[in-house]
C-alpha cells in the first residue's frame, strides 16, 4: 500500500443544519474520528464540529477544568450522568460549530497533511478538492496504514 492521502482517506458524512449532536457522536464513534465538517444552508463547507469542543461546552465549566484534580465521586455534578448525557446528544449542533481550519487537497503529499496537523495542534485534517469534501486524514489512520508494513521489522540476518 502506498503512503499517500488517497490511501489513508476516511470518507465521512458532513453535518448539516438541523442535525443533532447524536448524529455527530454516532459517526465519530463508528469511524474512531474526532471531528466532522459542517455545511451551512447554502451548502458551503463553513465550519468544524469536534468532540472535544462539544464536551467542553456542554458539560465542562471552566472552573471544573481548572480544578480537575479535585473532582471526585461525591460531587453533585456526577449525579444523573445518564440523564445529562441524553440531554446533550439531543442538542442541535449549531452552537458548537467552530471556524473551519486549514484543509488539504487529496493531491498533496501525506507529509504535508502531517505537518499541517502538527502546526494546527490537531490529530485530523479535512481533505477538500475544489470545495468538494472528500473525507479526512487522521493520525490514527496514518499509523494504522504504517502498521501494515510489519515485514520491515524483520531482524536482518547476521553475517
Amino acid at each position: 500500500m502506498s503512503m499517500d492521502i488517497q490511501n489513508v482517506l476516511i470518507p465521512t458524512i458532513i453535518i448539516h443544519p438541523g442535525m443533532y449532536v447524536r448524529d455527530l457522536f454516532k459517526e465519530c464513534g463508528k469511524l474512531h474520528i474526532h471531528a466532522l465538517p459542517y455545511c451551512d444552508e447554502k451548502g458551503n463547507l463553513s465550519g468544524t464540529l469536534t468532540l472535544k469542543n462539544i464536551m467542553k461546552f456542554s458539560c465542562l465549566p471552566e472552573h471544573m477544568v481548572e480544578l480537575a484534580n479535585l473532582l471526585g465521586n461525591q460531587m453533585s455534578c456526577v449525579e444523573n450522568a445518564e440523564e445529562k448525557a441524553r440531554e446533550i446528544i439531543c442538542n442541535p449542533v449549531e452552537p458548537y460549530v467552530r471556524e473551519l481550519g486549514e484543509t488539504i487537497s487529496s493531491k498533496e503529499p501525506l507529509i504535508k497533511a502531517l505537518a499541517l496537523m502538527e502546526k494546527n495542534k490537531t490529530s485530523y485534517i479535512f481533505v477538500v478538492d475544489n470545495n468538494d469534501y472528500k473525507g479526512q486524514v487522521t493520525i490514527q489512520g496514518i499509523a494504522q496504514v504504517m502498521s501494515t508494513f510489519d515485514d520491515s521489522c524483520a531482524i536482518p540476518d547476521k553475517p
Partner: peptide, 16 residues
C-alpha cells in the same frame, strides 16, 4: 448533605 460533599474533598489531590 451538601456540606458533607465539601468535607469529602481531598485537598491533597489539588497538589499536582
Amino acid at each position: 448533605e451538601a456540606r458533607e460533599r465539601i468535607m469529602q474533598f481531598k485537598e491533597r489531590q489539588a497538589i499536582t
